[in-house]
């Protein structure tokens, strides 16, 4: 498993190739990329700043991958999350999973992203023309994460 929290951008093509070519019994790679939007709740977004808790954030992401490995038959997983100040269209996060078949990879990728949203210590602050504001956690994200407790 690979977990990276970094200010630098990442190359999706390179990362997916590493994951894909690691073993010959891999038949599927599923990935999710999150990027900065230029609008949120009706307001223009100039920049987005991400803060994290060094040490705990990495542990939390490793724990999310471990949980995915326990639940699905996956070969490997990768999470890269950026911190610092980003602009619209900048990549924020990459979650990617390799497995023999697509079903496990699709499920594990969505699970990891849903858990990351509610468990991993990252905080976003937006700059709009009206000023700065911290983002509030969303009920929809809690709901998305909670439904995995019911699914088998």
């Amino acid at each position: 498993m690979t977990v990276r929290v970094q200010t630098e951008d990442f190359d999706i093509g390179f990362e997916l190739k590493q994951l894909r070519l690691a073993r010959q019994d891999i038949g599927a790679v599923v990935s999710f990329v999150g990027q900065v939007r230029d609008i949120n709740e009706g307001d223009a977004i100039t920049t987005l700043t991400l803060e994290h808790y060094p040490g705990m954030t990495e542990k939390s992401l490793e724990n999310i991958i471990s949980q995915a490995k326990n639940r699905w038959d996956i070969v490997d997983a990768l999470i890269i999350h950026r911190v610092g100040t980003l602009q619209p269209l900048d990549q924020i996060v990459l979650v990617a999973v390799s497995s023999a078949h697509r079903g496990d990879a699709f499920n594990a990728c969505e699970f990891m992203m849903d858990y990351l949203k509610t468990e991993a210590p990252f905080w976003k602050k937006e700059v709009t023309p009206q000023g700065e504001r911290w983002l509030e956690a969303k009920q929809a994200d809690d709901d998305a994460s909670a439904r995995w407790n019911m699914k088998k």
């Binding site: 999150g34 991400l50 994290h52 808790y53 705990m56 999350h81 924020i92 996060v93 992203m113 990351l116 949203k117 509610t118 468990e119 991993a120 210590p121 990252f122 905080w123 976003k124 911290w134 983002l135 509030e136 956690a137």
Partner: peptide, 10 residues
């Protein structure tokens, strides 16, 4: 020990 608001990453 750490105190923080609910998380908003991703």
């Amino acid at each position: 020990v750490a105190f923080f608001p609910p998380v908003t990453g991703g």
